[in-house]
Amino acid sequence: MSIGKYEDLSDIQIDVLREVGNIGSGNATTALSSMVGKMIDIQVPSVKVLGFNEAIDEVGGAEKIIAGILIRINGDVDGMIMFLFEQNLISLIVQTFFGSAPQDILSLNEAEMSALNEMGNIMAGSYVNAISQLAGMTIDVEPPMMTIDMLGAIMSVPAIEMGEMGDQLLFIDNNMVIDNTSIQSKMLLLPTIDSLDHLLGKLGVA
């Protein structure tokens, strides 16, 4: 059966996507953890199909200031990976690379920005490698792009690109936890509706 809309997904398909998120984000978190030398856990991922406004509320609210790192993926899965990093994770990463934490998220210099970008790159690569191996797929990762701005403005990018054919977004959402404190930083996998069919087919639940 072909999926015409995100809301057509069955419970089994949702479970499989959750497992995809679990494996991908587990690998990405291991990469992050070894870079910053801290124990980082991920909470059990959730698969969300939401309207645009609900999706933005769900990940933190329209006017929240956050770092967004966007990585387009294509090949057997088309879409994007979006990392949403909050102040405390940014501080941790910047401190690891440069020895001192930034004053605030809006005052990062170019070197600090590019360190975060590279972290996103490494994590996206790990995420995608895990999914590729899982289903014998080839997925290419484009260079990461980063901005620090209002969450709503950042999320307008996937909303526009994924939302062209409907009024909802599907994303697999992972919260990261560092040293037992939830840091509310997120990894989102947003597959296009066309590639979702393909992915589910490869995983045997189309």
């Binding site: 329209a62 209002m150 709503g152 990018v157 909303a159």
Partner: peptide
Amino acid sequence: IGISDWKVGRGDDVLVTYALGSC
């Protein structure tokens, strides 16, 4: 006013739309 929405008002109404990106 959310994403892909419009609203009208008059008098001393205030209309707000948050975090326009490419929209």
